[in-house]
């Protein structure tokens, strides 16, 4: 009798432990997937800042505009929104390069005031893009009902849309890292970011490097928009929230630090996932900003690039 009771208690303990283990794993999975979304939103902004020192306040507007175009395309044609990805990458890159040449490059010649002027230019551009999106797409929140279910692995659920977005972000981050560190043009880009004068003296066409960096950054932001509209409702006015989110993440990860930003995005996702489960939605919402304050107080050196 006593032995049977002990066996039953042992089984219950094991089941409880297994349940706790599954919960911990699911929270981890949810956090990593959320982090993947953050990488997607933040990395392109990080590229533009890292190489050019330009704080692109129009970042969220580009994501929202691309997302709204994807919605329109998908609803109009009935085709997969993912088909817009190559178009967004190419179109975004072309538009970004054109915008850089017409709007950003002239203010980059302003010497010490270049940072402030580019901030003002991209701030104005963000409003122009939001207004354009409002006029063309309206102000409704919209989202594409695509990849809404999840893949199951045992007791764990992997949201399909987040997996696709995270995988895309991972591939793009890896390609970006490889390009910047292993190819001549990428190294030229890094050199131009570290010392434009030094790069110039080595024969690097710094203006061209900036054009490429801005083009790629905007292309990636547009691609992020294609995936974001599948994950959550987006409206033109979402733009400022997306910009803020991206800034918090790159500030946490280290401005211009690609691996740092990816790591910060993933850790933030996991921390929010755990906080949301145990402490509720308000704690999850406020966590990035609390962490930002902590990081700023603990390691202001990370923000040296802002100066």
């Amino acid at each position: 009798m006593r032995r049977r009771r002990a066996r039953r208690a042992g089984t219950a303990r094991r089941e409880g432990a297994s349940e706790v283990g599954t919960l911990a794993l699911q929270l981890l999975v949810n956090g990593i997937l959320l982090g993947g979304l953050y990488v997607l939103v933040a990395q392109s902004l990080n590229l533009i800042f890292g190489v050019m020192g330009v704080v692109n306040l129009a970042h969220g507007s580009i994501i929202a505009l691309a997302g709204l175009f994807t919605y329109w395309f998908s609803m109009r044609t009935g085709l997969s929104p993912l088909l817009v990805l190559p178009l967004a990458l190419a179109g975004g890159a072309a538009a970004g390069a054109a915008g850089q040449r017409l709007l950003i490059e002239p203010v980059m010649q302003a010497g010490a005031k270049a940072g402030l002027l580019s901030l003002i230019v991209t701030f104005g551009l963000s409003y122009v893009l939001i207004e354009l999106a409002l006029q063309v797409f309206g102000s409704d929140f919209v989202s594409v009902p695509y990849l809404q279910s999840s893949w199951k692995l045992g007791a764990l659920a992997f949201g399909k849309a987040l997996v696709v977005a995270g995988a895309f972000a991972a591939v793009m981050s890896a390609l970006l890292y490889w390009w910047l560190n292993r190819t001549y043009s990428g190294k030229a880009l890094l050199a131009a970011s570290q010392s434009p004068t030094g790069a110039l003296s080595c024969g690097i066409d710094v203006a061209r490097v900036r054009l490429i960096a801005f083009g790629i950054g905007v292309g990636l932001a547009a691609a992020a928009g294609v995936l974001v509209i599948v994950i959550m409702p987006v409206a033109p006015q979402t733009a400022s929230d997306l910009t803020l989110l991206a800034f918090v993440i790159i500030a946490l990860g280290g401005l211009g630090d690609y691996l740092g930003v990816a790591a910060a995005a993933l850790l933030l996702g996991i921390a929010q996932s755990v906080a949301g489960y145990y402490l509720g939605g308000n704690a999850e919402y406020v966590l990035p900003y609390v962490l930002l304050l902590v990081v700023m107080l603990a390691g202001p050196g990370r923000f040296r690039r802002l100066g």
Binding site: Q26, L34, Y277, G280, G281, N282, E284, Y285, V286
Partner: peptide, 19 residues
């Protein structure tokens, strides 16, 4: 039961509801 600020991620809340 929970109250929340407007946010995009509901995975944790959904998981807590599931449990």
């Amino acid at each position: 039961r929970t109250t929340y600020t407007l946010q995009t991620d509901f995975s944790s809340i959904a998981l807590a509801i599931k449990h």
